[in-house]
């Protein structure tokens, strides 16, 4: 009976819940929020990409070898593993800002999958190009060396 009257008393009390859109909910100062990236500090070691459990970070590479950082806030689990793995302090960091919702226009799932594959392909293309150039250079060097040797021989 005591419980009943106590419960009835709650009718005259203010609600204990937070009126969310009008009031801010509890967010601690060191909330695990969005991952930030500083391009100027990054040494492009790709260690954050290697440790990321869900694969929310990927680097693409153009033909000049310049890398670009891509991050998907909908795939990220905000564990902070990339921040711990980063050898250069401040290059990748965690903010206290909660991630905003994704819009349909962003095409955040399928678009990301495509981007991810393209980024890996671009890196492969760059590596292949580098290898081809290196092979070309090696062949040219070899030809030049052979020519030189020939010249030396004839010269003698």
């Amino acid at each position: 009976m005591k419980t009943f009257f106590k419960a009835l008393g709650n009718v005259f009390k203010k609600p204990v819940t937070t009126k969310y859109p009008f009031e801010q909910t509890f967010i601690p100062d060191d909330y695990r929020g969005l991952i930030g990236f500083d391009e100027n500090l990054c040494i492009w070691c790709r260690r954050c990409e290697m440790v990321c459990p869900p694969g929310a970070i990927v680097f693409s590479q153009d033909m000049e070898g310049k890398q670009t950082y891509h991050f998907n806030r909908a795939v990220c689990i905000y564990c902070g593993e990339c921040v711990r793995a980063c050898p250069k302090e401040g290059a990748i960091f965690q903010t206290a800002e909660p991630a905003p919702c994704a819009l349909k226009a962003e095409n955040i799932n399928n678009g990301w999958n495509k981007l991810f594959d393209e980024a890996l392909a671009s890196r492969e293309a760059y590596a292949a190009e580098k290898k081809r150039k290196a092979a070309e250079k090696a062949a040219a060097d070899k030809a030049a060396a052979a020519k030189k040797e020939e010249e030396n021989k004839t010269g003698n």
Partner: peptide, 19 residues
């Protein structure tokens, strides 16, 4: 949330210690 930074998925223990 104050200790781990998240309400449900704490991701607090990592191999070798805590985060």
């Amino acid at each position: 949330e104050a200790v781990c930074g998240n309400r449900i998925q704490y991701d607090f223990s990592i191999v070798g210690g805590v985060a």
